[in-house]
Simulated scan of single mutants.
Amino acid sequence: MTELNSEASSTASRRKFLTAAAGAAGALALAGCTESSTADDGSKSITITGSSTVYPLMSAIAGEYAAENQNIKPTVNRTGSGGGFSNHFCVGNSDFNNASRPIQPAEQDKCGENDVEYVELTLATDALTIVVDEDSFVDCLTVEELARVWESDSAATWDEVADRFPNEPIDRFGASDTSGTYDYLIENIQGEERGHTSDYTATEQDNQIAQGVKGSENGVGYFGFAYFFQNPDGLKAVGIDSGDGCVKPSLETARTGEYQPLTRSLYTYPSMEALGKEYIADFARYVVGETTNEELVAENVGYVPLSDAVQEEQMQKLEDAIEQAN
């Protein structure tokens, strides 16, 4: 088998694994109130909302758990970090909310208003990835150039970003404003005062971003590294120069912290009420237990697993929360 064929086979295997895991996890769209409950057949449900970036990781873990525990039905939904907090978790309609950035003060207030208590658990490390078409003239962007692409008063053509680029219109694809990735880009690249352009195709479906960018030689998009890791065909990951030269996103540069400022932590937030249920506490322990699983987290999904020391800290935090919930 050639190296190229081996890489293609590996990518196909990752996709097959994640598709099977998502199916086992019962990844369905939300429809009204979807709190954890016991079904007529005796099975028990767990509702998980939030980040599309965390979605492939949580789906993989939930899928494996469901395969081992036939009476437990975890459902993972892509609502965006903010959409999950505001519309579901902080009003008491989901058991977990996944997030690609920490919970924000306004969301904390909304949870407080509805007596929703929670614990923050770190799951993995991501390299937020800027992608272009594989034939694009863009190979590397400085942080300031990236800001010009995505700020509110954004550049209309690539030569307005940098003189080395041609006079071609910028075709943007990115996360919706309910996304934690959208928030992260503003906070760590443009800054709040420069905001985020509205001149782009917005979606919570990261695969749609990938497809849009693939169809445009002038296109650019962003999403979690897992989506590039699983769908590299036709795309190129752009290097970022934060002052020390161009660094490409990868598991290794995220692990070492070289890829800045787009290396970030990924989280899940179980509610204290949910952790008071033994089967949900067991699921939460399983989730944290899998965060050091190199094969699942890195090789199959595309994120950096936790170190043993950090996993122990997260497990202790979870155990303290479970004890408090009971």
Rank of each mutant, 00 (worst) to 15 (best):
Q260C: 02
Y184A: 08
A254C: 10
K214Q: 15
L266N: 03
P232I: 11
T197W: 04
Y200G: 01
A162Q: 03
E252Q: 14
S198D: 13
V220Y: 02
Q211A: 15
Y267R: 04
V161Q: 00
R172L: 11
V149I: 15
L146G: 06
G245I: 13
K214T: 06
T157K: 13
K236F: 05
S179E: 09
V149G: 05
P166C: 10
D177F: 01
G245K: 12
Y259L: 06
L146R: 09
Q208L: 15
N231T: 07
Y267T: 07
R164P: 01
W150Y: 11
W158H: 04
V220K: 00
N218P: 04
A226P: 12
V238M: 04
D163Y: 09
E258I: 07
Q260R: 14
G191N: 07
T201G: 00
D233Q: 13
G243M: 11
T178R: 04
D139C: 02
Q190W: 02
Y184P: 03
D163P: 04
A226W: 11
L266I: 09
D177V: 01
D183Q: 11
Q205Y: 08
F223V: 01
Q208M: 08
D241I: 09
G245E: 10
G195M: 04
D135N: 15
N207A: 09
L251D: 05
P261T: 08
F173C: 00
S179R: 02
F229N: 07
G191M: 07
R148M: 12
L141W: 12
